[in-house]
């Protein structure tokens, strides 16, 4: 087995980890397993793709459409990503306003909200398929050559960039949650929303902040996956089980846990592809999930189930 497995696993795991962080935050603060989260990744990727379609011509006209340094994309992509993330955030806030927020206000049971998210996820995914068709799309047409990075491993500049971006985002978010007053409020709401109100915390605001963070990270993860693989309407659905498994493995509510969970799932998938065969890749997350539920249902850094 070649050491390449390690780097392949890390790269896939970074995407899963970023997605799982958003999922674990909404899970611990809004208190429901959100089945639409995978589709936020897909929507983020498609929205970014659409913006970059408009922007590409514009930037090429300005003469700055060329790829940046060693990467496969020009300035259009980072700019489109910002816009795409903004649009994904708007999408989640609208969804919360017309669906999840309504159900919360009526005091609906958690499981009803989970079911609504399941229905919404099917609808969101199918809307993508209707607009963009089921054919895969690409954020860049440039081909990249993998460079040696030591220990017999190779990676493309794009792949290394995704790892670096993930590390930076997770570090920044970890600092926000542990040090800032917003982070403190988020932890308080996740422990006891009604007591948070007594303490003077505006719970609805904290919920909006959570959607903003979750949707923003989902968009970045979707674009990373789109950059390294491809964009399809079902990409979010295919990532959903790995996201859940990573969030539960890391311990619901734990940001470092979600990242670590994502990396472990990414590595396990890469090893499975090498040892058992690529056709079983999608089953890895399920095996991990079952093992966690049997051995340690609270996850690595979790508090309670």
């Amino acid at each position: 087995m070649s050491p390449q497995v390690l780097i392949d696993g890390l790269i896939a795991g970074a995407t899963i980890g970023l997605g799982a962080i958003g999922l674990t935050l909404t899970y611990s603060i809004l208190r429901f397993a959100n089945f639409t989260h995978g589709d936020f990744l897909a929507w983020g990727a498609y929205l970014t793709l659409t913006v970059s379609g408009f922007l590409g011509g514009l930037l090429a006209g300005l003469g700055i459409g060329e790829p940046i340094g060693p990467f496969s994309f020009g300035w259009g992509l980072p700019l489109s990503l910002l816009a795409g993330a903004g649009l994904t955030i708007v999408l989640t806030l609208i969804l919360d306003k017309i669906l999840f927020g309504q159900l919360r206000r009526r005091g609906a049971d958690t499981i009803i909200i989970v079911m609504a998210s399941f229905g919404a996820s099917m609808a969101l995914r199918s809307v993508l398929e209707f607009i963009y068709t089921a054919n895969p799309q690409y954020l860049t047409r440039e081909l990249q050559i993998a460079q040696p990075v030591g220990f017999g491993m190779r990676a493309t500049p794009d792949q290394l960039l995704t790892i670096a971006v993930t590390a930076l985002l997770v570090l920044a978010l970890h600092l926000v949650v542990t040090r800032s007053s917003t982070g403190r409020s988020m932890r308080a709401v996740s422990e006891n929303p009604s007591l948070a109100g007594v303490y003077g915390i505006d719970v609805q605001r904290v919920i909006r902040v959570t959607w903003v963070i979750g949707a923003g990270l989902a968009c970045v993860a979707g674009v990373m996956s789109g950059l390294l693989v491809q964009i399809r309407p079902y990409m979010g659905f295919d990532l959903l089980l790995p996201l859940f498994a990573a969030a539960i493995l890391g311990g619901v509510g734990s940001i470092p846990g979600a990242l670590l969970g994502g990396l472990i799932i990414g590595l396990a998938e890469a090893f499975t592809v090498q040892i058992v065969g690529a056709e079983w890749r999608a089953g890895v997350a399920f095996v991990v999930l079952v093992l966690v539920l049997i051995i340690r249902p609270t996850g690595l850094f979790g508090r309670t189930v």
């Binding site: 932890r187 422990e191 006891n192 109100g197 508090r303």
Partner: peptide
């Protein structure tokens, strides 16, 4: 809503679960 009442100067200490056990005392 209760957070707005807290801002308006109505203090309230519930009977049970009246602190955040998973935050530090200072927090």
């Amino acid at each position: 809503p209760s957070y707005a009442l807290a801002k308006r100067g109505l203090g309230f200490v519930p009977q049970t679960e009246n602190i955040f056990a998973q935050l530090t005392i200072r927090e």
